[in-house]
């Protein structure tokens, strides 16, 4: 079975000369289908940088990356946008919903960019909002929702297109304990349904939900172990 993520000797260098920063120094990582991976590490260790490369939001300076058997290094920008749309669902620390746009319209967006017809879009987006417990908030705009609710909308948006990979960069970083457990429960559900998840977190209690934890130090993987669950 091809792994969902296969990284070989990935490096990322920001800037040049005096201000050059080696954010990643050679990452080798394989994530299999159905894995729930947590990435930990100190601030500045390169977690987000790695996540952005996995999500095809950014391009590695060197190394080789295959997603679901597709060679990402060789794709141009328009092919990458299709990959992001079909294969990946994102959840960000800062929610990143489109402002002044209803929850329903936000959740519909990935389907819209995929070319799904209007009626099916609405049905699926409504169902996704229902699944995250926001059936009664479909026509609220982001600024009319609490942080926890906004993050659940973001989860619904990441889910609706049924991606093979769910990426979450500190999804609970801005949430209280109640909303944190709501969001983590949702991710557990998805994991139970067989979805592959990669999540960045600073908190051990959050990482404990995953079944594999890797720790980054200065752009290198320093530990990689399975949790005992």
């Amino acid at each position: 079975m091809t792994p969902v993520i296969s990284l070989q000797q990935i490096t990322k260098v920001y800037g040049a000369g005096e201000t050059e920063v080696q954010a990643l120094r050679g990452i080798d990582l394989t994530v299999n289908r159905g894995d729930y991976l947590a990435i930990m590490g100190a601030s500045g260790s390169g977690k987000s940088t790695l996540m952005n490369i996995i999500g095809a939001l950014d391009i590695a300076s060197s190394g080789h990356y295959e997603l679901d058997g597709i060679n990402i290094d060789s794709l141009d920008e328009s092919a990458l946008s299709i990959v992001r749309n079909r294969k990946i669902g994102f959840i960000f620390q800062s929610f990143n919903l489109i402002p002044r746009t209803t929850a329903l319209a936000n959740v519909e967006l990935p389907l819209l960019y995929r070319g799904v017809g209007r009626r099916e879009r609405t049905t699926r987006a409504t169902a996704a909002l229902g699944a995250v417990g926001l059936a009664d908030r479909t026509h609220h705009e982001p600024n009319e929702l609490s942080g926890g609710q906004q993050q659940r909308v973001a989860v619904a948006r990441a889910l609706v297109a049924e991606p093979s990979l769910l990426l979450a960069d500190e999804p609970t970083g801005n949430l209280d304990s109640r909303s944190t457990s709501d969001v983590l429960d949702l991710m557990d559900q998805m994991h139970a349904q067989g979805r592959t998840i990669v999540m960045i977190t600073h908190e051990d209690s959050v990482a404990a939900r995953a079944d594999r934890i890797i720790t980054l130090i200065d752009g290198l993987i320093s530990s990689d172990h399975r949790t005992t669950r």
Binding site: L57, N85, F90, N96, I98, Y113, R114
Partner: peptide
């Protein structure tokens, strides 16, 4: 620009 970034992250092409 941020909105454009979000849209691209969820798969909007440059043309869209």
């Amino acid at each position: 620009t941020r909105e454009i970034g979000i849209r691209k992250a969820i798969g909007a092409s440059k043309g869209a």
